[in-house]
Amino acid sequence: MSTAVPAVVLTGFMGAGKSAVGHAVAARLGVGFLDTDSEVERTTGRSVAEIFATDGEAAFRQLEFATVARVLREFDGVVALGGGSVTVPGIRAALDGHQVVYLRVSPEVGFARVMGSARPLLAGDDPRGTYVRLLAQRCKGYDSAATATVDADQPLAGVVAAVLAAVDADTRARKDNPA
């Protein structure tokens, strides 16, 4: 087992661009990229939507917690967390000591990005209303977990540049103030 620590952890609501930004940031840093939702799917052999449908959200959150805790211990690249990760107290606690960048997306931009996609939490009569409500509920969790916040409404190149600047600033601060 490695004792490596992720270069950066990306968090934010669905539609913030965590996967696209994560791939680009990882390439720029010369490290690997891992999406925890994809990792849950890989290890269980089932899609997130299937887990939600057959086992429920609580069961998915347990799988997510176990996956995130393992990834944060073992993986030394860029990690994109699922949009609901901040609702799990154990995950928020596991993020302590990591560089966590919150990709903050507005309801308008985020919903436009996910509209028409298969998102289990948006499978109802009012997906836009659900999106706005869930985003509002989770903002405090994202803020409390983050070491930096980046505006994710801007084009990908701008988000990537801002994440890299935040990582650089956090790395310098850690070197200047070791724990």
Rank of each mutant, 00 (worst) to 15 (best):
A112S: 14
E108H: 11
F111Y: 13
L95F: 10
L95Y: 10
E39V: 09
V40P: 00
V78K: 10
V71G: 05
V79N: 02
L122I: 07
V78C: 03
V78F: 13
A93P: 13
G116S: 09
S85E: 03
P89K: 13
G90L: 12
M115P: 00
V101P: 00
F52A: 08
P107F: 08
A49M: 09
D35F: 13
T44D: 04
V109W: 01
I91W: 02
V31S: 03
T36I: 04
R42E: 12
D35I: 04
G116V: 01
F75M: 09
V109I: 15
F60A: 03
R61Q: 13
A118T: 11
P127Q: 05
G124A: 10
A53V: 04
G56D: 13
V101Y: 01
P127V: 02
A112W: 02
S38Q: 15
D55A: 14
L72I: 14
V114D: 04
L135W: 02
G77C: 08
L63A: 02
G56R: 13
R119D: 01
T87D: 03
Y131F: 11
V105I: 10
R113L: 08
A123V: 02
V31K: 12
L81Q: 08
V31T: 13
L81W: 07
E39S: 06
F65C: 01
L63H: 08
T87W: 04
T43Y: 07
S117R: 12
A80T: 12
T130S: 11
R70Q: 12
L72K: 10
E57V: 09
L81V: 07
S85G: 14
T36W: 05
E64C: 01
L121W: 08
D37V: 07
A123H: 11
A112C: 07
G56H: 13
S117Y: 04
V114M: 08
G56I: 07
A136F: 02
S38T: 14
E50A: 15
R119K: 14
L81C: 10
V40L: 13
L63K: 06
A58L: 14
T54D: 15
D96I: 04
P107Y: 11
V78M: 05
V88S: 02
A69I: 05
I91F: 04
G97Q: 07
E108N: 06
A118V: 10
G110P: 01
M115S: 12
D37R: 10
V101Q: 00
Q99F: 03
Y131A: 00
I91L: 03
V31A: 03
R128T: 02
L121T: 12
G129P: 02
G45H: 11
T87K: 07
E108F: 05
A53E: 15
A66D: 14
P107A: 13
